[in-house]
Every structure is written in structure tokens, then in C-alpha cells.
């Protein structure tokens, strides 16, 4: 909406450039025009290309998030029981190649010492 002042301003008329200016400007500017449209430039400065790059980045980020979610450890795995010291000792003894008798005596010792430790803590 225009008020009185704005209407007055619009009514003052709009100056136009002098007719000679066109020839002067074009004479100065036209010789400077050169073809500069390599395929790489067309690609780099094209708005469509730039939008396509942004969309590609967003899509890649989306794929990354989805794939990370798929590869995350499941809740079931987290809820598995933690190995007890006796079980850990039994597995280590088996790896070392101890005989079943030695292994069971070692496990028995570990159980005894851990029971004593628990009793002392209470």
C-alpha cells in the first residue's frame, strides 16, 4: 500500500539513460566477451549439479545411519551371562592343554578362594 509521499515520489518520473550510453557501454564491454563454457565449468556452476551433490551427500549419510543401525549388537547378546572366574580358569586351562584332573583341581581352588573372598567381604 502506498501513501501520499510514495505516490508523489512515483509521479516524479523516472530518468532514462542517454541514448548514446548504449553505444558507449557496448563498445567498451563487447570486446571483453569471450567464450568460457567448458563442460567442467557448465557442470560446476550449474545449480542442478549443486543440488544433485547436496542430495547425494544426504542420501549417503542416510545409508550410513541405516547400515550402522543394522550392524549394532543385539540386546540378546548384551544379556548373556558373564563368565565366572571358575569358568574362565577352566577355559584357560583347556587352552593351555592341562589334563582334566589338573583343570578340575585348579577350578576347585579358584572356587574355594572366591568363596573365601565373598565370605570375608560379608
Amino acid at each position: 500500500m502506498t501513501d501520499h509521499t510514495e505516490r508523489q515520489l512515483l509521479a516524479t518520473g523516472r530518468p532514462e539513460p542517454p541514448s548514446e550510453l548504449r553505444a558507449r557501454v557496448l563498445a567498451a564491454a563487447m570486446p571483453l566477451v569471450r567464450a568460457d563454457d567448458s563442460a567442467l565449468d557448465r557442470l560446476w556452476f550449474s545449480p542442478k549439479w549443486r543440488i544433485a551433490v547436496v542430495i547425494s551427500f544426504v542420501a549417503l549419510a542416510g545409508v550410513e545411519v541405516v547400515s550402522n543401525r543394522a550392524a549394532a549388537p543385539t540386546a540378546v547378546a548384551e544379556n548373556q551371562p558373564v563368565a565366572t572366574p571358575a569358568r574362565a580358569v577352566a577355559l584357560a586351562a583347556a587352552d593351555l592343554g592341562l589334563s582334566p584332573a589338573d583343570t578340575s583341581s585348579l577350578v576347585a581352588q579358584v572356587r574355594t578362594s572366591s568363596n573365601e573372598l565373598q565370605g570375608a567381604n560379608r
Binding site: L10, A11, T12, G13, R14, P15, E16, P17, P18, S19, E20, L21
Partner: peptide, 9 residues
């Protein structure tokens, strides 16, 4: 050199 050409509006 240039009489002004005016357009109002």
C-alpha cells in the same frame, strides 16, 4: 549531450 527521456509509472 542527452536530453532526458522520462517514463512515469
Amino acid at each position: 549531450g542527452f536530453p532526458p527521456v522520462i517514463i512515469t509509472g
